[in-house]
Design a protein around this nucleic acid. Structure first.
Lengths: 224, 224
DNA sequence: CGCCCATTTGAAAATAATCAATGGAAGTGG
DNA sequence: CCACTTCCATTGATTATTTTCAAATGGGCG
């Protein structure tokens, strides 16, 4: 298999600064298997033995947790370049499902751990990645605990924009997904987006793509 | 210095299962300095170089983040046995202050990292601790994003009870602290506690100590 | 091309925040 | 050691934001 999946190796930090790409993890390339998923197809279920790590190549994946009474929480959206499962223990504590048609690499966790044991740099990269995850988690707790609906949406859009690269933001997930990620209802998400649209802060190109027309206005809404 | 601080070495997981004590970290004992803090005295401020790790021996510490408009978020309450700073990068991303008179051990971070570099088991313990922190963070995101006020309070009490050991729960922090930790106002916290008291689910021994009279009732409120 | 499902929008209801006043505990200084 | 002062907690009334319920619109996929 050519170097297709050796090229980009982004950190999986969501909010906050991106850590330096863990170059030492490049040692992992070549030990992975490519797999494909259809929309809504599960990658794994909660409680499954955490035998693998994954990296998203194309498409998007969500991690989610469903409560006894049906409420659903989405822990993360994983886009191209993001890792899944690095922070699992014995088994995965949540489910992972494809949001849209997706392609991933699957790494044997055992092999990675073995590499980490004999090559301290890999172990350190893992720690670095986990640090950045924790930083992201802290920021998201702040968001979920203390921000208004509009602030959450603004933060979400800025975040995706920072990850996606240019101005066009791709939103492969549904409004319900976004709501379950931000602790809001679908309706509230929709209303917030509509308001941003009517104020001219964002423009919409189809349901699943928006552009930030006025970044300053968005940033003014989100003040950490 | 005697083995006073080699005795208990609890994981710092907040919610969720406790990981096995990281025995290999016992190698750290003997390299720490004991320090004391008065009520509200800062341990460090956001942006300070993260030169040290700390372990709480006695008392309690909070980590907090103040937004531009004055809203305050408390990231964690650290009680006896808990570690502070393990997940920091170059500098601390938040402030840490004593909630009540506290005693801690201060470890040189450099020394710990050096130990970790030559002794993979220590590195692995760090990863384990961070894994459990991430698991706790995930659970708290779920809480902050999808739980009602009463559910948050129930979870908080059960959590403290699990950490504290026996039935008596010590609440050294103010109601405002609890609110800032759970994403609620002081008044909402107070009302929820009053309701639990009037229902006979908890009893109160002074402002800063409660007992769970009916654990089943609390657990019924908190359903993950 | 047509059906189905996600989205949008509106109106009503609920939860928690805010505003406000009282009561009580802890800590200070004489 | 006691009294004073200050801060914290409690409780009540009101307001605001978000959820819930409901209907209509529109896009995307087969």
């Amino acid at each position: 298999m050519p170097a297709t999946h050796a090229v980009t190796f982004r950190s999986t930090a969501y909010h906050g600064q991106r850590v330096a790409p863990a170059e030492s993890l490049a040692a992992l390339d070549g030990v992975g298997v490519v797999i494909g998923l259809r929309r809504d197809e599960p990658l794994f279920r909660p409680g499954d033995t955490a035998e693998f790590y994954f990296k998203v190549l194309k498409g998007a994946v969500r991690s989610c947790h469903v409560l006894a009474d049906g409420r659903r929480h989405i822990g993360d959206f994983f886009m191209a370049g993001d890792f899944i499962g690095l922070d699992a223990g014995e088994s995965y504590p949540f489910a992972a499902e494809a949001i849209a048609k997706a392609m991933l690499i699957r790494y044997s966790r055992q092999k990675v751990e073995a590499l980490a044991a004999e090559e301290p740099r890999i172990g350190r990269s893992l720690v670095e990645i986990m640090r950045s995850r924790l930083a992201a988690a802290r920021e998201r707790m702040l968001l979920l605990g203390h921000m208004t609906a509009m602030e959450r949406i603004a933060s979400f859009l800025l975040d995706l924009s920072a990850r996606g690269g240019d101005g066009r933001i791709c939103l492969p997930m549904t409004r319900t997904d976004i709501g379950d990620y931000l602790g809001l209802t679908m309706e509230t998400v929709s209303r917030a987006l509509s308001q941003l649209k009517s104020e001219g802060t964002i423009t919409q190109q189809g349901l699943h793509e928006v552009t930030i027309a006025n970044p300053a206005a968005l940033m003014a809404l989100f003040k950490p």
